[in-house]
Design a protein around this nucleic acid. Structure first.
Length: 772
DNA sequence: GTTTAGGATTCG
């Protein structure tokens, strides 16, 4: 860089052939090769770009004389403009050599010299370095700082309104910079000094870096040019023009290194002493131990500051944002997992998976969302006044887990601050994270196995997970364990809980930690009932006649049909209205009583939703949950008998009032039904030539584009399923002729009575369809 | 050249 900031007098550093030029002798057209001009920077304009893209920087230099023409414009172009623009300050002394003199187009307006100086780094000019000074064959420029002005600092008990002062103080309270409702970042800082007087300062700046870099209560700050005024009968500090700050670690004995964004600042030995004195004073007069905690030490229902690393982030909705963080320690309580779309999650998926047992999910709200969005994954954060909240699952009040919230607002300094990598706390954290043995925490893994828990519920208890592939990785660098498929198929379809209920997996973790054995009750899994079962239930209902009392209501109309040659059987169809009007059939939900399976199937082709019902003396009611509570085309929705807390059919009217979209989850919710989800469960025997292994595959929703929810009611899909299974597992073939499958496998322990058994699961595996 | 906020937890 051809620009150098120096300490000494510039004259002593200049080559002897250069002669100083006075402005009155400066003329256009004269050779200036051996001349230099010295002046004080009285004005500098913002660094800008010319139309052609060249960097451009303009300053005004004043000669140290009093004549009227003592100022001159100096124009910098190209790299020099860029370099100078970053370091030149008003008040600097500057020496310019190697300049061109040109006529100043603005001389008439600005009353400055009729010429201006043009300075640029010519292409090809060689730069020689001699000692501290850069000398360029065509020009060189040096600056030196004016003598540091002597600052005086006002003790906090001597403040007067309407003054601008310089202050020192220990931070008693602070709000990390947050996005204000105006144009700037805001940070509120309360400082105190040996006079024991407090001053709360409200600091604004559009540039986050320009606000004091306070990380902890007890940090020491130095404020220059802060405005003092009275507010609510108290003194208040506020940013004004020229405000600048330095921040120091408040720890007694720690190195005195100022944190500042300013490139030039004065700092004397005397000031160093001031900081040491303030540190010592604060150590005994200020309670500096903030409510910090490690994840391993958190208590529910508390506010605390967390120092952590960001590993993932995702937008949840407009007013909340998810941060996935870890601090190397393990939260002792089961903690929540916030569900987001995989595609919405930013961060290294592999790392997130590896750290899954140490990561906690934090939801930040409202004003913190904007800042949270801007955070870079991988950065180190301190989250202030984070709230842990104990919550329990809706249907199991005795089962609790911890939620992490950063509520909206900035009370108690609530907010987020990025810590630099060189921060001592970050260094310590990093060292600790490096020492964490991930395999240890993975051995008691349960997080990602939550779904499996649901499936295997009644047959198993899981005590110890091991990732086989991670053990074999040392031998196989592809990260895949290769097995050959060699067994005849066995596939069936199960129903299991929806993900919401799976969220309870956290309990298992806790129980595992206590080395107790947890066994699911049989409720967590049930085989999909046969269509014939449903038909029987329907026939049973049809035996009793519909109750005419409940035929019409404000929110549905009823039609009753007689049947031919079927005795007394009547079919009652209740059409749910919206806004007191019937909707188009394809948008309509109907409640059917007395229909057979065949009739209901027929109706489900025409109407959007069907709820099979029966009538009591007072009202309609849902059938037993052995039957589907809702039919949508070919999809039959079932509810869990044990977990559902059924509400009256009247609850549906609330949905009918709004513009009803008849979402199954919404219908289930208002009816108090815990919906069940269709899952494929398949068992494969894999053989890699060295041995055979049985492994289970669980697939929600879709297996090769075949939805689990539809396969039982579609013969077409069943045929497709057969075909795929025949390709994957052709029967009666020799091992060598069987297809290869690359997949991830992991083991888990299953306890059946007293017997313990190791089982295997295929997971995270994708088989490309064109292979099939 | 103005505004923001002006310390004082918990809805999600």
């Amino acid at each position: 860089m051809p620009v150098q900031v120096i300490d000494g007098a510039p004259e002593t550093l200049l080559p002897s052939h250069l002669q100083k030029v006075d402005l009155k002798y400066l003329q256009w057209g004269c050779d200036q090769a051996n001349k230099y001009f010295q002046g004080t920077v009285i004005l500098s304009y913002p660094l800008t770009k010319l139309v052609n893209g060249t960097e451009f920087f303009k300053i005004v230099l004043q000669e140290n004389s009093c004549s009227k023409t003592s100022t001159i414009n100096v124009l910098f172009f190209g790299r020099l403009a860029d370099d100078c623009g970053k370091v030149v300050h008003q008040g600097d002394t500057m020496v310019v050599a190697g300049f061109n003199v040109a006529k100043s187009p603005s001389a008439n307006e600005d009353d400055r010299h009729c010429c201006h100086l043009e300075v640029s780094e010519d292409a090809g000019s060689a730069v020689y370095v001699r000692g501290n000074v850069f000398i360029c064959v065509h020009f060189f420029i040096v600056f030196f700082q004016p003598v540091a002005p002597k600052y005086t600092y006002t003790p906090l008990n001597h403040l007067k309104g309407g003054t601008i002062v310089n202050l020192y103080g220990a931070v008693k309270f602070f709000k990390p910079p947050y996005v204000s409702k105006g144009t700037d970042y805001c940070s509120v800082v309360t400082i105190v000094d040996q006079s024991n007087v407090k001053l709360t300062c409200t600091l604004f700046n559009g540039n986050l870096d320009a606000l004091p870099k306070i990380y902890k209560i007890g940090d020491i700050v130095r404020f220059h040019r802060i405005k003092i005024r009275e507010y609510n009968k108290q003194m208040q500090g506020i940013t004004g023009i020229g405000f600048a700050s330095l921040t120091f670690d408040g720890t007694v004995g720690a190195p005195i290194v100022p944190r500042t964004s300013s490139k030039s600042y004065s700092f004397t030995e005397e000031e160093q002493k001031t900081i040491e004195e303030l540190r010592t004073w604060a150590a005994s007069n200020l309670s500096v131990c903030g409510p910090t905690a490690k994840l391993s030490g958190i208590q529910p229902m508390l506010f605390f500051d967390l120092t952590c690393q960001l590993v993932g982030k995702a937008e949840v909705d407009g007013s909340s944002f998810l941060l996935k963080v870890w601090d190397g320690t393990k939260c002792p309580h089961p903690s929540w997992k916030v569900l987001v779309e995989e595609s919405d999650l930013e961060g290294d998926k592999v790392l997130i998976h590896r750290l899954r047992n140490l990561i906690v999910d934090i939801l930040v709200y409202d004003n913190h969302v904007k800042l949270a969005k801007s955070l870079k994954v991988g950065s180190f954060l301190r989250i202030y006044s984070l709230h842990t909240k104990q919550a329990s699952a809706e249907n199991q009040p005795d089962v609790s887990y911890v939620e992490f919230h950063l509520h909206g607002g900035t009370c108690y300094g609530r907010g987020i601050r990025v810590l630099p990598e060189n921060n001592p706390d970050v260094k310590e954290l990093k060292a600790f994270m490096d020492s964490v043995n991930l395999t240890e925490s993975q051995n008691v893994e349960s997080m990602s196995s939550m779904e499996l828990d649901g499936i295997f519920g009644n047959l198993s208890c899981k005590s110890n997970w091991k990732l086989i592939h991670s053990l074999l990785l040392h031998k196989n660098s592809t990260g895949h364990v290769i097995f050959n498929i060699a067994l005849k198929k066995t596939w069936s379809v199960f129903l299991s809980f929806k993900q919401k209920v799976f969220g309870r997996y956290k309990i298992h973790m806790d129980l595992l930690d206590q080395k107790t054995i947890f066994t699911y009750s049989s409720i967590s899994q049930q085989e999909v009932p046969d269509g014939d079962d449903f038909d029987l239930i329907l026939r049973d209902c049809a035996a009793s006649a519909p109750n005419p009392e409940v035929h019409n209501s404000l929110w549905y109309d009823c039609e009753v049909w007689d049947t031919e040659n079927q005795g007394q059987r009547k079919i009652a169809v209740h059409f749910v209205k919206h806004d007191e009007l019937l909707q188009e059939p394809e948008d309509t939900l109907i409640m059917v009583q007395g229909g057979t399976l065949k009739e209901i199937r027929k109706l489900s082709r025409r109407f959007k939703c069907i709820i099979p019902v029966r009538s009591t003396k007072e009202d309609l009611e849902l059938l037993d949950l052995s039957a589907p509570f809702l039919l949508q085309g070919k999809i039959w929705h079932y509810g869990c008998k044990q977990c559902s807390n059924q509400k009256t059919i009247q609850s549906l009217s609330s949905l009918a009032e709004e513009e009803p979209s008849w979402e199954p989850t919404e219908i289930a919710r208002v009816l108090g039904i815990e919906p069940l989800q269709y899952v494929f469960v398949m068992k494969f025997t894999l053989d890699d030539g060295t041995g055979a292994l049985d492994a289970y595959l669980f697939d929600y929703e879709k297996f090769f584009q075949i939805p689990a929810s539809e396969v039982l009611t579609s013969s077409l899909l069943q045929e497709k399923m057969e075909m795929i299974m025949n390709i994957l597992c052709p029967s009666g073939t020799k091992l060598d002729d069987l297809p290869w499958l690359e997949c991830f496998i992991r083991s888990y322990n299953v306890k059946d009575g007293m017997e313990q058994q190791v089982c295997y699961q295929i997971f995270d595996t994708m088989v490309a369809e064109d292979v099939i």
